[in-house]
Simulated scan of single mutants.
Amino acid sequence: MTKHTIKDKVVLIAGGAKNLGGLIARDLAAQGAKAVAIHYNSAASAAEAKETAAAIERAGARAVILQGDLTSAAAVEKLFADVIAAVGRPDIAINTVGKVLKKPMTEISEAEYDEMTAVNSKTAFFFLKEAGKHLNDDGKVCTLVTSLLGAFTPFYAAYAGTKAPVEHYTRAAAKEFGARGISVTAVGPGPMDTSFFYPAEGADAVAYHKTAAALSGYSKTGLTDIEDVVPFIRHLVSDGWWITGQTILINGGYTTK
């Protein structure tokens, strides 16, 4: 196996059952991955996980489905242990887990804040920790964040604020894991045309987001289409390995830093 190819590699995708995670899983299988382990959180995504696994196997890769709430260190440790037991040490680890909350700061409860921190920040930290312990040398790690990290906007304090630490986790992990040839990146898509986006937004906000990017008029939805994000993920976990410690906003000119 060559160092910086997807062919014959073992891939783990947290949140890999549907939406962007599911499309990444299908794409990397089509690129020749040997095995793709897809994690999902709750029973609501079980059917989509099975559909994605079937697509992976049709592409010629082995599919493994793993379920769990990753908001504890023990759960993330178990996820990596289960992947290793099933298909061996991963070469590529991608974390797409996230939760959005759009709400004024004055209305956010402590319970909501704690949940957002656990899903968006704590999960990312321990995913990176376990990736650093268990990935093969010359591995690749990528975490999904948000283009709101480059925005000056109200109402997303608990969402963007709990994704923001991942930028530093990424830099630190890149420095710490680099001696083993492991590259570490974060990708911040713009508002995406998925089921993750719409429940948090009212009609006026959806209309705004569909026109906010510089290239909105050239997108089929006006939003960031997941098909436009996947090629960047593919590049970062293969030939783009020299990019490390970076947070890259992929959003058609929605925000910049």
Rank of each mutant, 00 (worst) to 15 (best):
S238E: 02
K210H: 08
T5E: 06
V145G: 03
N251R: 03
S219W: 04
A59E: 15
V64N: 09
A179T: 12
L23R: 14
E51K: 15
A173Y: 09
I94N: 00
Q31N: 05
T221Q: 00
F197V: 06
G161M: 06
V187E: 02
A49L: 08
S147Y: 11
G22Q: 01
T146H: 03
A29R: 01
G32N: 13
S42Y: 11
V206T: 09
G161S: 07
K220C: 03
T247V: 14
G88I: 11
M1H: 11
A157F: 08
G161L: 12
D69M: 06
N95C: 15
Y254P: 13
I38R: 13
T71R: 12
E115T: 10
A111W: 01
V87I: 09
I13Y: 00
F80R: 10
N41P: 03
K210T: 04
A173L: 04
V184K: 08
A43K: 13
G139A: 07
A85K: 12
K175Q: 10
A179L: 07
A47F: 00
N120A: 01
Q67V: 08
L236S: 08
H168Y: 15
T106P: 00
A213H: 03
I84R: 11
T5D: 06
T71E: 02
E48V: 04
A200W: 14
G22C: 13
T224L: 07
E57W: 07
G21M: 13
K175T: 03
E227D: 15
G88C: 12
Y169D: 07
T224S: 09
K103Q: 14
K18A: 05
I108A: 10
K257R: 14
A151T: 02
V206R: 00
D225L: 01
G188H: 01
S109V: 04
H39G: 01
A85W: 05
H168D: 14
V229M: 09
F196N: 02
L79Y: 05
V230N: 00
D225E: 15
N251M: 07
K133S: 10
R234P: 05
Y113H: 09
A35W: 09
P90A: 11
K210I: 02
G16C: 08
S216W: 13
R171W: 01
I108L: 11
K129F: 09
V184N: 07
D225G: 03
V230D: 10
T170K: 06
K99R: 13
I108P: 12
D138A: 06
A214Y: 11
K129W: 04
M105W: 15
A75M: 04
A151V: 07
V76H: 03
T52N: 06
A203T: 06
S45W: 10
P191V: 00
N251Y: 11
A160S: 12
I243Y: 09
V64E: 11
R171A: 06
W242P: 01
K140T: 03
I250G: 01
F196L: 09
V230H: 12
N41M: 12
F177V: 02
V97P: 11
S216L: 14
L70V: 05
A81S: 15
R26W: 04
F196D: 02
G222H: 03
M116T: 00
L23C: 02
Q31C: 14
A118T: 08
A158I: 01
T247G: 00
H4Q: 14
A158P: 02
G253C: 01
T224I: 08
I92S: 06
